[in-house]
Amino acid sequence: MSSKTLMRNVIALVFVCMLINLTGHLQADAAPPHKEFVPPKVPPVITLLEQTPLYSTPDDSHKPFAALTPQNVTTVDAEQSWYTKQRGEKVWIQIKTTWAGDLWMHLDYDRIGIVKPIDTNIALLWDSSLYTQPSLSTMTDVVLAPQTVHANAIFESPVSYLTNSYRIETSWLGDMWVVSQPHMLLDMEIVNQEMDLPTETLYMEDYDTSNRMQRPSDAKLIPPQTVFAFEKTQNGIYHVRSQDGNTFWIHPDFAQPAGAVQMKERLNLLKDVRLYLFPTMPFPTFGVLSAQTVDAFERWTDPQNEQWYHIHTWAGDMWVQPDKPL
């Protein structure tokens, strides 16, 4: 074999090795990184809801070493895979004590959590059962009708089905718990005063009715009137009662704008525009109107000095903003 042939073979071999090495790197880079599962830690502090036996070892066949009254305790450790337990099962958790070192308690899985004080009002939207503790096993026969209540504590727990568990105040049973109740509104502001609705306003049977409207015909408008406002959500939606005793929800912005000027004008739309039920209600919109000539019967200037026009459309009377691009 000539020296030139040998050199070509060596170069080819080196090239193949480099190609194999590069392919391996590309495959490694393309593969998603492996994420090692990190098991959740037991909460650092747990509130004992009742007298709880303590053991020197995680074995309740032995006599308890002592017992603790309801209080907050600091955790040290927990049995392996404690987070995989189910409702009705118990978990061994090791806690600190100042008088006997680290001891164990055998706690119901749905009692793992901490009670934290809060000061807020909660609107219960559905019938709600009352509990003596933030645990599903403590349900009573008492059921509250939809109403707004004051909550003075929350139970924070890693147990997912205990989400939305609050201690509320009642006038006849004292403090009770609402447990695992998703149908509620938090941080309600108590209003309890009359409220003037100066223009036609969207009637909402539920607080989120506006989010579920799919077409303009879904909207129900009520005439100008004075209502009594009970409370207000964080999003500015009021729970009100009309003079005939009907209760419903309204938002001051979901209404015809005050100060709109009556007019009768042929309006040339030079570009596509969105259709709005009200100028002050950005969502939902109800389609797009292509460039054309329309009949406008009202004009309103918003706080940003932009012009809105109330027009007749195939979808009913809608508001458009001709100078605003889509």
Results as ranks from 00 to 15, higher is better:
Val227Asp: 00
Glu231His: 09
Arg212Asp: 05
Arg266Thr: 15
Lys220Trp: 04
Glu189Gly: 03
Val179Ala: 11
Gln181Lys: 13
Glu194Asp: 15
Arg274Phe: 02
Val273Phe: 03
Pro257Thr: 05
Ala260Ile: 03
Ile190His: 03
Glu194Gly: 05
Ile237Ser: 02
Asp206Lys: 14
Ala229Lys: 10
Ala255Arg: 01
Gln234Met: 15
Asp272Ile: 03
Ala219Lys: 01
Arg266Glu: 15
Val240Phe: 03
Arg212Ser: 11
Val273Asn: 07
Thr201Ser: 13
Leu269Ile: 08
Ile250His: 00
Gly245Asp: 09
Glu194Gln: 12
Thr233Val: 08
Pro224Val: 06
Glu231Arg: 12
Met188Ala: 09
Ala258Gly: 06
Pro182Asp: 07
Ala229Glu: 04
Arg266Ile: 06
Gln262Ser: 10
Gln256Ile: 00
Thr199Ser: 14
Asp218Arg: 00
Lys271Gly: 12
Asn246Arg: 15
Ser217Ile: 04
Gly245Trp: 04
Met188Gly: 12
Gln262His: 07
Ile237His: 07
Ile250Thr: 01
Arg241Met: 14
Thr233Phe: 02
Ser217Pro: 02
Asp187Arg: 14
His183Phe: 15
Thr233Ile: 02
Tyr238Ile: 04
Gln243Lys: 13
Val227Tyr: 04
His239Met: 01
Glu200Phe: 14
Ala229His: 06
Leu197Glu: 11
His251Cys: 06
Asp196Cys: 02
Thr201Cys: 09
Trp249Leu: 01
Leu267Thr: 10
His251Phe: 03
Glu189Tyr: 03
Val273Met: 11
Ile222Gln: 00
Gln193Arg: 15
Phe230Arg: 05
Asn235Gln: 14
Met184Leu: 15
Ala258Asn: 11
Met188Trp: 07
Pro224Leu: 10
Thr247Lys: 08
Thr201His: 10
Asp187Gly: 08
Asn192Gly: 05
Met184Asn: 12
Phe228Glu: 01
Thr209Gly: 05
Asn235Ile: 00
Ser217Ala: 14
Val179Phe: 13
Pro216Met: 07
Ala260Arg: 13
Gly245Tyr: 02
Lys232Trp: 01
Pro216Thr: 06
Thr201Tyr: 09
Gln234Phe: 07
His251Val: 02
Leu269Glu: 05
Trp249Arg: 08
Lys220Leu: 11
Met184Ser: 09
Asp218Gly: 00
Glu200Asp: 14
Ser180Arg: 10
Gly259Thr: 06
Met204Ala: 04
Met188Tyr: 07
Thr226Asp: 09
Asp253Val: 04
Asn211His: 13
Ala258Cys: 05
Met263Asn: 01
Ser217Gln: 11
Asp272Thr: 15
Gly236Met: 02
His183Lys: 08
Gly245Val: 10
Leu221Gln: 04
Asn211Arg: 12
Asp244Tyr: 06
Gln225Pro: 10
Thr209Leu: 04
Met184Cys: 06
Gln256Glu: 13
Asp187Tyr: 06
Glu200Arg: 15
His183Met: 12
Thr226Lys: 15
Lys264Arg: 12
Arg274Ser: 15
Leu186Trp: 12
Glu189Phe: 08
Val178Glu: 08
